[in-house]
Amino acid sequence: MKILFLFILIFHISHVNADEIYNLIKIPNLEIYKLKNDNNIRYLSAKGNFKIGVNKNISCDKVNIDNLNSKFPLIEKNLNRYNSNFLNKIKLKYIVFCENLFISEINTGGIPDNKNRTLILDINFNKKYFERMIHHEIFHMIQNIYVEYFDEGKFSSLNQTSFNYAECSTCSDRLNLDLYEKTDGFLTEYSKSIPSEDMAEIFSFLMTDKETIKDKINSDKILSNKVNFIKFNLAKIDKNIL
């Protein structure tokens, strides 16, 4: 039995490079992209493909450095909106850049991991939604830490009683990220998937397109209540983020 265990151990450990970054955030094949930043965020990039997570269900490819260089100013501009104190509170320190990010074979723009203070970003994510996606994923990190502030039951009760969210974010076909012309309580189709995605969509619009939100809530009471819910609870963490 011991020999079998040893054999399994050797098999498992022989595929992971034990470098200093892996030791810190448990993602292999990374290198430093930019370390010193005003808000103490650290940018890392994938120098090789990697697979992580339960049953290696998260996979991402190495970055083309020219591709990253061209997109980095936009990413940095968006992340610079968060101060170091706020980032500390939501446990975000490392941004990992890679291409073609998949979780359980589903393409995704970002994967937040509060435990390792890391947000993995797919730099090839749809250009149209890219900036919004960054803030959307950051909201998930906020909610993971401040579960009590962003209670899904309380938030869901702001909807019409006849409305029901899906069981999970990927088990419905409500995936479109385009802004609704007529909102009816929801900014996008994806907002209708689950409460946390609904909240994240509101937050991402608040961060990137405040004017549109202002305009939409004038004629949408439900959405207005939801926006106020997000703003009110976010202010408990940091008054200056929005």
Partner: peptide, 9 residues
């Protein structure tokens, strides 16, 4: 060293 592995046998 562990020859590029995490743990050393």
């Amino acid at each position: 060293t562990g020859n590029k592995a995490i743990y050393v046998l």
